[in-house]
Structure formats: structure tokens, C-alpha cells
Write a protein that binds this DNA or RNA. Structure first.
Lengths: 216, 216
DNA sequence: TGTACATCAGTGAACGCGCGTTCACTGATGTAC
DNA sequence: TGTACATCAGTGAACGCGCGTTCACTGATGTAC
């Protein structure tokens, strides 16, 4: 009895795949989404793309190379989530100072929302040291061409421009704000707040963002 | 040619090991110290204890069981580091309110110091969701019998008692403080601050603790 | 004080697993003439 | 327009690795008589 015909070949009409790099990246993203960085397994990505394991090596030099690509995509998704939240702010018409404050809060809110709804991607994005600061890798940015770190920075710049934040307090402020928000995200995702209710989390998020605004 | 006599048997005089549970736990801690949670490998722990791999199953029901024990020990180390920092505060004689503030800062400082000097243990301690809040597991506590979360809580209580923190702001305050400090630790360990200098980190830590104090 | 025996912490060998990666290959595609 | 050929994205088989875990065992120790 012969082995069943491989589904692979019936799904693919041609010997060539079509767009294997993209298919592998998307499979990798899906794996990260579901299980974080450790779930990004090269063989599984090729399985999902309907291709032999070693085919991946035509497009990625190693497992780590694929993982880095997935990470960049995760950062890009995060940037998009933050941008979406900022866009919501811009529509309201208020004073420039209040709008600047709202923008900073939106960065924090977008960050937290992403962490809670796309936990796997979030964890993947920060699974490995990265020099985000001066990073110009376009794969990590949102529509604006800015990565998450840069989005935070420009929100803080706006705060300075509108006189809300004294200029001398600006340097390094992104690290303070980021620390607070990132820490909360972590406590919710895999820390003691993992069993907190949505309401509690929302209340805590608001208070945290207030703390940052007040204490910056 | 026969295989060389196993060092194992020459090192151990008796058939019994002596204190294998302790040896395995300590080996596990050492592994975590060097490489974080993923480095806690059951077979490697038995190798270091000079024992066959399966011997571990006399004392730990599984790999996960060993890892949990290592995690508890890591949390306990963190508690000790915080307690040591608090002890330094108590020696100075100042007003009660100022002392309470200093205690809270000490909790933050101890936490950050531990994160930076014992990175592997720190990452292991927080590698898995845990309900630290009402946790009475003595393996996770320091000399005071309190785990890190409870140490933070009692520092905040002190702040309320001395009138520094309004009582109505007390509930949930540990999460805000913890978020900020934990987030900074993370950014330094595996985030964009991983290449920052010691001076920069110290300055940032001070500012962050100020922010918490002011914004709480 | 000596002997029989139960206990149980260790041994040694083996398992299946899935991983990342390498090798020599094949065959569809696009291009040069 | 047809043919020869180079390219290179895929195949198929195999590798070594180290892991966690299970099995039947052995032999030192402590205890009961």
C-alpha cells in the first residue's frame, strides 16, 4: 500500500511555492501569537507553509534569523496598535496641552491593550535585547515610520512643546514612562495580576498613567 | 580498554548521596543563576550532583517540580536582598516620615540591585505566573518571613502610618510601585537600556523612585 | 550482640521525541541565441 | 518561434543532539527480634 499523496503537492500547483518567505514569516507570527517566542519553531513554520523543513534555509539563514523577523513584525504590530490609539485622541478637540497629555496616555493605553490582547506577540517583541532607540529598521515601525519607542518619544516631545513637561525633565523621560507601563503589562501577563478582573486592570492602568503624568 | 572509573563513585563514599534533594536544588539554582529559567535542566542538575538522571525522581516528581523549587528559592533570595537594603535604612536616625520614605526607596533599590546582579535568578523568579499576594510558601520569603511582594506592602503600610501616603491611596499601591520598578529592571536587563552605563542606570533609578513617590 | 529482613535511594539501560541543520538531488522557470 | 541552458527554489533522507521520563534492578542502611 502506497503512502497517501502528500497534501502539500495537491495544494500547491507549481513546484515553486509562490511566496515562501512571506508564508514562513506569517506562520512564525502565528506561532508567536499563540505561544510566545519559544513557540516560534522553524520546522513547524515550514509545516504550516506546506514545505519541507530545509526549504526555510533558502530564505532565512537560521532559526534565529526567522525569529528576529518575527520579532520585528511584532514590534511593528505594537507600533500600529499605539498609532491607532493616538488617532482616537486627535479627533477630539481640546486645548493643545490637554491634547498632548491625552496623546501620552494613548501611547500607554495602546501599549497595554496590545500587551493584553496580543500577549504572545508582545512577549516575543521583548524576548531578546534590542537597541530600539536609534533603530531605523522599517520592519519594526507602524504607519508613521516610527517604532514604539519613537512614538513614545514624540508624545513626550509634544508635552514639552505645549509647556506641560519642563524641558529639563525631557531627557530620559521615555525610560521612566516606559518602565511603568511595561512593568504593569508584565504583572498582568505573567505576574500576580494575571487573575485580576478587567475592571481592576482598567482602574490600575488609569492610576498608573496618572502616576506617570504627575511624577514625570 | 575499560572505561575510566566514574568520578561519581570515587567522590561519593557511600551508595547514598548524603543530601541529594539539597544538592539538586542548589545545582538548579546555579543553573538558573547562569542562564535563567531555560537553563534549569534536570539532567544537568543530576550531572552536577554526581548522580544518574533518574535519581532526581526520588525527590522531585518532574522537571517542572524542580523548576518551581528553584523559583521559590529565587524569590527568597530577592526577599533577602530587599531586606538587606531596608536594614541599611533603619540604622540612620531621621524623622519617622522620612524613614518610611527611605524604606520604600530601599525596597525599590534592593529590587533593582538584585535584578542587575542576579539577572538569571531574577528572570527565573518571574518566568511563570505566580500568585504571590496571599502566598504563604515559606520557601519564597526572606528572614522576616515575608516574600518580596509583602515587603513592598509593609513599606507602603509604613508610609500610611506616618501620614505620608493618604490612606485612600493605599489599596493597590503596591502594583503601581512594583510596575515601575519591575519595568525598569526589565528595560535594563533585556530591553533598550541593556547597554546603558552604571551611572545612567543609577540616575534613572533615582528618578524613577522619585516619580513613584511623587505620583503614588 | 548478632542475624534476618524490609526499606528505599540510588543505578544502568533504554525509550521516543522533536529539534535545527546538512547533503546531494530535481525539476520548473526565465533567458540567450 | 524554437531550443539549449543556467539558475535556484524546492525535495527527500539523514545526522546528531539532548532532553524528560520509565523500567527493572541493586545494595547500603536501619530496625525487629
Amino acid at each position: 500500500m502506497k503512502a497517501a499523496p502528500k497534501k502539500r503537492s495537491s495544494l500547491r500547483k507549481t513546484f515553486r511555492h509562490g511566496n515562501l518567505p512571506k508564508a514562513l514569516l506569517e506562520a512564525g507570527i502565528e506561532l508567536a501569537r499563540g505561544g510566545g517566542p519559544n513557540a516560534v519553531v522553524l520546522r513547524e513554520a515550514t509545516r504550516r507553509a506546506g514545505v519541507a523543513p530545509n526549504a526555510a534555509y533558502r530564505h532565512f539563514s537560521s532559526h534565529g534569523d526567522l525569529l528576529q523577523a518575527v520579532r520585528a513584525a511584532a514590534l511593528s504590530s505594537l507600533a500600529l496598535a499605539i498609532e491607532a490609539e493616538i488617532a482616537g485622541v486627535r479627533r477630539r478637540k481640546v486645548s493643545r496641552a490637554e491634547s498632548a497629555r491625552a496623546t501620552l496616555r494613548a501611547v500607554g493605553t495602546g501599549y497595554l491593550k496590545f500587551a493584553l490582547t496580543e500577549t504572545g506577540l508582545f512577549r516575543t517583541a521583548f524576548s531578546v535585547p534590542d537597541q530600539v532607540e536609534g533603530d531605523v529598521d522599517a520592519a519594526k515601525t507602524g504607519k508613521s515610520g516610527l517604532n514604539p519607542f519613537q512614538l513614545l518619544g514624540s508624545a513626550l516631545d509634544l508635552l514639552v512643546d505645549t509647556g506641560v513637561l519642563p524641558r529639563e525633565r525631557r531627557p530620559g523621560a521615555e525610560y521612566l514612562a516606559w518602565s511603568a507601563v511595561h512593568g504593569l503589562a508584565f504583572l498582568i501577563i505573567e505576574g500576580p495580576l494575571s487573575s485580576a478582573s478587567d475592571g481592576e486592570i482598567r482602574a490600575l492602568s488609569d492610576r498608573l498613567l496618572q502616576m506617570v503624568e504627575k511624577g514625570l
